[in-house]
């Protein structure tokens, strides 16, 4: 594989991880979040600070990074999740701008120049670059997918689905909406933090703009495109949205336009996403499966 392909694939894997985090919040628990990049950023900055200023390795910093993201997820999620729908969307946008502003204006975080000199990940004495880091990202991605699968099969996952479907009915069925919305939010932000940590160590240098509001929109586009609340949707969405700008280099400048148009088209024609219920792709896959059954 060429370095170029490895680089693109690594970013796709990282974006997919972050998107899986958002999928738990938006897809499973039904709580819209337009500020997911904030937690991606909190993960990246925590990893950067812990490795450059405290001298920790990627591995020893990781549990702390996840913990920090979880704590911030809980602190910012608890007040936000008291409001619903449009208000929640606006509140989470606000979170994104505030977090970005903190990175930008607090000198400790390097301001607009960002934080540099973040060391590479060392694995058994080997400095991971290129293929090695891609492998690490893919392993993390696989673990995240397994975690999501586990989650949907747990009572917590069912409780989140119930809350997403109807909060009042869920609470009169013995489910505390606050508890499970918060659980989904914290889980989603912790996963975003994992993505952030990988991103920081991959880049070696991060700036506040890497975690600005458009990044949140992009992550949301990934899951809307792939299929909210599905297991493979975020991966499919990340691959398509990650690969498209590379394939169509000339339209790279029009990324936001592309995302906007894509979101509109999806909402209009495939509201459940490419892998959602009753989607065209789903029915084709089902037909192929059915056809294979007849052959046998």
């Amino acid at each position: 594989m060429s370095t170029y392909v490895i680089t693109v694939a690594t970013f796709i894997a990282i974006q997919a991880i972050v998107a899986y985090g958002l999928n738990i919040i938006v897809g499973y628990a039904g709580q819209i979040s337009l500020g997911h990049a904030a937690f991606f950023g909190i993960g990246a900055y925590s990893a950067a600070v812990l490795s450059t200023k405290a001298g920790l390795s990627f591995w020893s910093a990781l549990p702390l990074v996840l913990l920090i993201c979880g704590i911030f997820g809980a602190l910012l999620g608890l007040p936000s999740l008291r409001v619903r729908e449009d208000f929640l969307a606006i509140t989470t946008i606000g979170i994104n701008f505030i977090v970005e502003a903190v990175f930008l204006y607090v000198p400790f975080f390097g301001g607009a120049m960002g934080l540099g000199g973040i060391p590479k990940v060392v694995f058994f004495g080997m400095r991971l670059k290129g293929g090695g880091l891609l492998a690490l990202c893919l392993v993390c991605l696989a673990l995240v997918i397994l975690l999501c699968r586990w989650f949907t099969k747990s009572w917590a996952g069912l409780a989140c689905r119930a809350v997403a479907a109807d909060e009042s009915a869920a609470s009169s069925s013995g489910i505390s909406p606050v508890r499970f919305k918060l659980l989904a939010f914290v889980l989603g932000t912790v996963i975003a933090g994992l993505g952030g940590s990988l991103y920081a160590h991959r880049m070696g240098f991060i700036t506040p703009a890497d975690f600005a509001f458009p990044v949140s929109t992009m992550i949301l586009s990934i899951i809307v495109l792939g299929g909210m609340g599905t297991l493979w949707g975020p991966l499919l969405g990340a691959v398509i949205l990650g690969a498209l700008p590379e394939i169509f280099r000339p339209i790279a400048d029009y990324r936001m336009l592309l995302y906007g148009a894509l979101l509109l088209l999806m909402v209009r024609f495939q509201p459940g996403g490419l892998l959602g219920d009753a989607s065209v792709l789903r029915s084709i896959l089902a037909r192929m499966k059915g056809g294979g059954g007849r052959d046998r």
């Binding site: 747990s154 009572w155 505390s176 508890r179 659980l183």
Partner: peptide
């Protein structure tokens, strides 16, 4: 969903199918 009423407290819900 409602049958699970006893499974929604503590950390059980994450570990039981």
């Amino acid at each position: 969903t409602a049958l699970g009423r006893s499974n929604y407290r503590g950390i059980h819900p994450l570990f039981r199918r």
